[in-house]
Every structure is written in C-alpha cells, then in structure tokens.
Design a protein around this nucleic acid. Structure first.
Lengths: 140, 140
DNA sequence: TAATTAACGCAACCAAGTTGCAATAAATAT
DNA sequence: ATATTTATTGCAACTTGGTTGCGTTAATTA
C-alpha cells in the first residue's frame, strides 16, 4: 500500500483517466521495486496467476500513453517497459539508449547524452537504441 | 545475369559454402537493385511467386552469417536486412544506426560516426539503433 | 444506493518467424 | 558425361508475442 501514497496515486488522480484497480496497482508495484526495464513477457510470467495477459498489455499501453512508462524493443523484438523520468501524456522525452546484457538479460536505461540523434536533412522523431553486451556484473 | 559477374559470384565461390541457386540469385538481385534496407516481409511479398518464405528466411540467415548482409529490427519488431560494407563471416562491423521514415517506411543506413557506443563499465558487442522520423522526400 | 462506464477475463484470433522431413538440384567424384 | 553426395528447397504444421470482440465485473459518479 505504501507505494500508492507516492506520486503515482496523485498522478493518476490528476489525470482522471486511469482507475486505481488491482491490476494497475500490481503493475505499478513491479516498476516501483525494480528500477531496470522489464519485458512484457516477464511481467506476464510474474503476474499470470493474478491477472490476464490481455490486461497486462492494455494497462502497459495506457501507462505509456499517460507518459508514465516508455517502451522499446529488445532482443528478438520483445517489448520492454521502463519508468519515464520527465514525460507526460503530451510529450515523451525518453529517447535515451538502453543497455541489454547478453548474459543475464538485464536491461537498464543509459543517460541520453550518449547519442547524437541529429541527422542532416531528416526530422528525427523517435530514437530507438539498444546496445547489447556484457554488464558490469557479467563482465568480470 | 549481369549482377552475378560482379563481386557476388566471386565471393560465393570463394566462401565455398553457399550454392549459386536460383533462390540465392533472386535475393542477391534484390539487394543489388536497391541500396536501402529491405524487410523480410517485403522480400516475401515480392518473391512469394518465385520461392517459399522459409527459403527466404534461410537464405537471408546464411547471407548474414557469411558477412554479406546485416540485420536489425525496425518498427513493430520486423526484421530488416541491408548490404554489409566491410564484413566477413568472422566479424561483423555494421553496428551503424539506421533511419526509418514513418511516412514512406523506407529504411537506410547512416554513417556510423553518428553514435558513440562506448559505455563505461560495460562491454558493448551489438549496437542496434533505429531512428524514426521524416526522410528528405517526405519532410517537405 | 443506483447509474454509469472504464476495466477485466476469456477465448479465439493474427502474423512473423521456425521446424521436420521428404523431394530436388547443385557440386563433386568416377 | 554419368553417378554420387549433400546442400537446398517446398510444404505443412507449428510456435509464440501480441491483438480483438464481447459479455461480465468493478471503480467512479450522481
């Protein structure tokens, strides 16, 4: 219950769109206790006893629309989600690169200044970047 | 027939692995007459009267293993292929970013110095970058 | 407490990509 | 040139991440 006294609850109330259902709370708590990105598949595995996979996909989509999560495609084209930092339903700022470890599979967000997304003669709207390799733990 | 008097034929003969079959020739000719990247789906649409989709996937995989094509995931997680510049079966150098137009869907390869793939404390093996937006033609 | 309406569960579906296997056709040996 | 070897192909069936339609349930509002 603790995590719903935080910004989440206020945010949702403010938006007035997303209802505080059991499913929404469960999904939010997953992103509360884990700072790295989580794949949709992983969430389905973890929560399938508690909610339907259709619901998971629909809530994730809504949380992304509201600027609460951002999504990207990892290895094999699987969908991953991570918390946004300064986004809203009006604008998504999270065009930073992600790093996926080929050993443990963990994905986390990198600081966005690692990339120069300005290409001459083109208007860049989305920058989907996934770097793959060995993370600090698996490297040694 | 003309395009098989080029480097392609010599390359294949040298490798001694890939046979000069009708399917291989057909797929190579597609990448000969189009310099931008092509999605697997597009190739299946174009060539389905001439070869089976399984064959298309298998030949593409082999051409990638031999360092002739490189692949990446575009919008929706669809697989795209483009010609390599200086790769071999031993090493793939094509970690450059790609640009996909959200209007016409066209994808082309960008010069690799647009990206800095060095991240502290991590060993980067693969860099999958897809920028999306408007290309020169669709921008105006 | 009742009315409204978003969210849910279920089952069926969609489609990109894969697998097993028998048939075919390149490459190689005779 | 012909036979043998073996990579390649086509087909059909399958796998699976993700979606859709719809009747039911539950959160919000009156």
């Amino acid at each position: 219950m603790i995590f719903f006294s935080s910004i989440y609850l206020g945010y949702i109330c403010f938006m007035g769109v997303l209802r505080k259902t059991k499913s929404v709370k469960l999904l939010l708590s997953e992103f509360e206790k884990q700072s790295t990105a989580i794949s949709a598949i992983t969430l389905i595995e973890r929560l399938q006893s508690k909610m339907n996979k259709t619901t998971i996909y629909r809530v994730l989509e809504k949380l992304e629309d509201d600027g609460f999560l951002h999504s990207f495609l990892g290895k094999n084209g699987y969908k991953w989600y991570a918390k946004c930092t300064n986004c809203s339903s009006a604008e998504h700022h999270d065009v930073h690169p992600h790093f996926q470890c080929t050993d443990c599979g963990k994905v986390d967000c990198l600081s966005k200044d690692a990339l120069i997304p300005n290409i001459p003669n083109r208007k860049v709207d989305v920058s989907r970047v996934v770097l793959q390799g060995k993370c600090e733990d698996c490297f040694t």
